[in-house]
Design a protein around this nucleic acid. Structure first.
Lengths: 232, 232
DNA sequence: CGCTCTATTGATAAACCTCAAATACAGTGG
DNA sequence: CCACTGTATTTGAGGTTTATCAATAGAGCG
């Protein structure tokens, strides 16, 4: 019972099922399966046959992709209320990315058939799905533009600010990014190397813009970062 | 009458309206407006209020985006049968990119209301739309990965091969890319500069992999390019 | 033929990566 | 509590890739 309430909460704040009435949500819940993940567990691999889509109910996932040489690129950190693997619903294809938990995480899953039925029953879901994908699409496009036109340090600044907005929580020192975030992660997220990321953050720490520990970052002067990101 | 038949042809081969019956197509056509563009005409600007989506019936469009400093990035060349600006249908937002004709081009347009009605009447359209967007989404993701992990020359090779597949036509010398494609365009498409693009193509021309003239490229040895793209 | 736009090429510099080595940190088991 | 181990981070030196600047050549057009 408690579990169902938890799920309901998540459905309400989720983007896919927005606008559904309570009794409709009940139907949705009955079709979904709950799954708990310890940190650093892979939910699915890029290339796996895509049969299921997932809603993050609690915790956070990291979406990545490897190239042939094994270099990792981070596309997105996905938090509670967000749907992933929408591709599974529509096409008989494979997951284009890998999803891995970065902390203790709970996801709710719907298989292709169930989701299709839900979409047919409640056309709003399809429309919602479409707008979610469009939003993400614009997001990648913007990051693609950044990657083409901005320098590494600007990209790191923009990335930190983005993470701050999506996973930031205010504390006494500044805004803490509530994701275990190593230098390598930042590098993979901005298209640079561990070393350049480290040097950059060190410099910013000396300037007092951030404070950083092992796999954690607090932004102490967001305004300075914003301004820096805008310099040519 | 002739015009309508032309439109019908395009609808049939298009991705959005796939699976519709003839009488349904008629309804779709009545909702659409035909528009002819000379080369280098801007159909819409990034930031314009998005009220209309377009299907390319003939010719080709270039989708680009500028950053604040005015650097241009090319996202896509869009050919006949392809839909653009789907975002216009769903959200009260602005076009995220600029669309410009690169040759004589004919587009069919539907405004937000009409498209919404069509989607409600024929739910297949929504589903098709969703799969189109998903495909493009994966495409940007792949290019994003490339940009992060591959060197300029590899990216140029991959880009030429991609263009070859989507706009290539075989002639006596090899496979001609049927888009006016200057060095600057290639640079904007691969995230490099005019100069690097020029040097690279010059080198390949000496090796006999391509032949190039003013704003045009023929790939004479695709296999060599493929192999080169795969080298580390 | 002169004009404009595009492409080539060399020289130079900047940005960034790579490698190597040292240091800091968190967790573990004695 | 402390040494130990494995991982994360820092930092320097040096090299590679790529951008930038400048000057020239070529192609198409009226």
């Amino acid at each position: 019972m408690d579990k169902n309430i938890a799920i309901l909460d998540s459905l309400h704040k989720s983007d896919v099922f927005a606008g559904l009435k309570t009794e409709q949500n009940d139907v949705v819940i009955k079709g979904g399966l709950c799954k708990k993940l310890q940190p650093k567990i892979i939910l699915f691999h890029q290339g796996d046959s895509a049969q299921t889509c997932y809603l993050v109910n609690r915790g956070r996932l990291k979406l990545t992709k490897l190239n042939e040489q094994g270099k990792e690129v981070i596309f997105r950190y996905v938090g509670a209320g967000e749907l992933i693997a929408a591709v599974a619903v529509l096409k008989n294809s494979n997951y284009p990315v890998t999803a891995e938990s970065v902390e203790e995480t709970e996801v709710i899953s719907w298989d292709k058939q169930t989701m299709m039925q839900l979409m047919r029953r409640y056309p709003d879901i399809t429309i919602n799905l479409l707008s979610i994908i469009l939003e993400r699409f614009e997001d990648v496009q913007n990051r693609y533009l950044e990657l083409c036109t901005e320098r590494v340090e600007q990209r790191i600044a923009l990335t930190l600010l983005r993470l701050m907005r999506s996973a930031g929580s205010k504390n006494s020192e500044g805004i803490y990014i509530d994701i275990p975030l190593g230098r390598q992660n930042i590098a993979d997220y901005t298209g640079t190397t561990l070393y350049t990321a480290s040097r950059t953050l060190s410099a910013w720490e000396k300037k007092g813009w951030i404070k950083s520990g092992r796999e954690q970052i607090v932004i102490t002067d967001p305004h300075a970062l914003v301004q820096f990101a805008e310099t040519i």
